[in-house]
Write a protein that binds this DNA or RNA. Structure first.
Lengths: 213, 213
DNA sequence: CGCCCCATTGAGACGTTTCAATGGATGTGG
DNA sequence: CCACATCCATTGAAACGTCTCAATGGGGCG
């Protein structure tokens, strides 16, 4: 369940220890992860960042009573794996067949604006997610989620859902049934059409965006 | 819903030299901000970080319908102001008389491990906040909030609440009435005692922590 | 002292969760 | 290739918890 290579962090928080050479110039091996495969687990040694070549990943934590909170989804082109300490705070799992490469920091142990920007973007994304999870109705939450996904997938109105309804519910803080009911409601409102359970087409983007305001 | 009353925002100003806190290498000016004063606003130029010498700060965003989501509270000793772009994504306001010093990025635009660690810690804190807001009951949310505050204030069981009930509600994703009712419930359960509306004493820490599991 | 803002408490409305049953897609073995 | 098992998704009805609306109480500050 753990295809990634172990890392040896040299500092008190998770950023990759420096590589000898400038990594961008060297071909990186792509590790493959089947759907459902764990990439890293809470409590494991942290240190490596991952960039998604293809596929999708969920970041989550299990609560004491078995409930699960998904804190982020990442798709093709995105980078994940930031941690504040040298131990993973969350689980990362592939939710579809996924290929990953690793990302390293600069050799001198200091961090480029690019890497910092990626970390900060993760932070802001988490904070913005709070706006959604904390304060909105089920329908609004789902609208925000779909708009966000559409934006990240190319604004073309065709939204691929690599994750299950359960994943969506655990991400938005609602039950699978409410996710399903809300999707049906959006369908009844003429906002979207389900091409299949895992792929939908936006029919009325402005109405969808109005809901996610 | 219930956006809190925004008092007249006044910018911070520098204290006389005699009142400045001693910096590490050279003395940094401490700017003072009255309770309710805006420190920065969404859309402003970003880049400067702030360290809290005394007081407390709320980080929040206003939603289109006037609702407000507080994404973080910061207290004495903590650093805030990280942003993913060169524009502020959130508002920062003092919620009590507050003194701030500034923290600068390195001159060459790259980032020290210490600074990166602070940013990553902010990120993880935001993600952990998601666990609370998304998945828990009102009583559990409040318990988590109080335990966190106690930990950050010295584990002594005396919890100072610099923020209003409205702030707490906007942070935990619930109404002011539910905050109040939950506090009363914790009181009735013998978990805590209200020394005043803004200060409470934990009587049964293990029960409080059990609730926040 | 009195005003104002904040906090508390109550009762009913509303939305989400829970429990339960059905439907649909996928994959495996006979 | 079909039968069947399994997992995921949809839909319904009732229970529950939070929100809303409303009134009262209390503390700080002019």
């Amino acid at each position: 369940m753990h295809a990634s290579s172990a890392s040896i962090p040299s500092r008190g928080f998770n950023l990759p220890a420096g590589l000898q050479a400038k990594g961008m110039l060297r071909p990186r091996p792509v590790t493959f992860h089947a759907a459902g495969a764990e990439i890293y687990g809470q409590g494991e040694q942290a240190g490596v960042l991952f960039k998604i070549e293809y596929g999708a990943v969920r970041i989550y934590r299990l609560l004491a009573d078995g409930r699960r909170q998904v804190v982020a989804f990442h798709i093709k082109g995105e980078t994940f794996g930031f941690d504040a300490w040298n131990v993973r705070s969350f689980y990362a799992e592939a939710i579809a067949p996924t290929g990953l490469t690793t990302v390293e920091a600069d050799a001198d142990g200091r961090y480029s604006p690019d890497l910092m920007a990626l970390a900060l973007r993760s932070m802001v994304r988490a904070q913005e997610h709070l706006l959604v999870v904390g304060r909105q109705s089920a329908l609004e939450k789902l609208a925000v989620f779909l708009v966000d996904l559409d934006d990240r997938q190319g604004h073309d109105g065709i939204i691929d859902l690599p994750m299950t309804r359960t994943d969506i519910g655990d991400y938005l803080g609602m039950t699978i049934e409410t996710v399903s009911r809300s999707l049906s409601k959006l369908k009844d409102m003429g906002v979207l059409r389900l091409k299949s359970t895992r792929c939908l087409e936006v029919l009325n983007g402005s109405k969808l965006r109005a809901l996610s305001a």
